[in-house]
Amino acid sequence: MIHLLQVNPSSGEPIYQQLTEQIKRLIAAGVLLEGDELPSVRQVASSLSINPMTVSRSYQMLLSEGLVLRPRGQKMRVAQAQASDEQARSEMLQPLVDDLVKQAKQLQLELSAVQSLLAQSWNSVTIPSDDADN
């Protein structure tokens, strides 16, 4: 699943939060299932070229929220099996949507213009799927 993770060091959001949010989304969307192993801190740090403490911090947050478990001496595993319902997944997007709307209003765009932008983007943007995982 490492290839599904990415960080943007220039974003306003700290890297450990970016990672935590991405893993949460992968769990919510059912891409990561109960019992799935998370890659080791070192693997993630190495492959994304980020500080291992940043990865640990993100894993700690997931642990404290009960989204992952670490059985004694084993790798970190995903705790919940059930993909969150659509309502919960939608809520995760809320801050991004609020931000988008704010910027759209600053640009004096109409709702219809934003909707057609969204539709265009929906049809052209693809995300990596988990099939490529080994």
Binding site: P9, S10, I15, L48, S49, I50
Partner: peptide, 8 residues
């Protein structure tokens, strides 16, 4: 951006 990535 390098520091952002690697620094603790």
């Amino acid at each position: 951006s390098d520091i952002e990535r690697i620094a603790s």
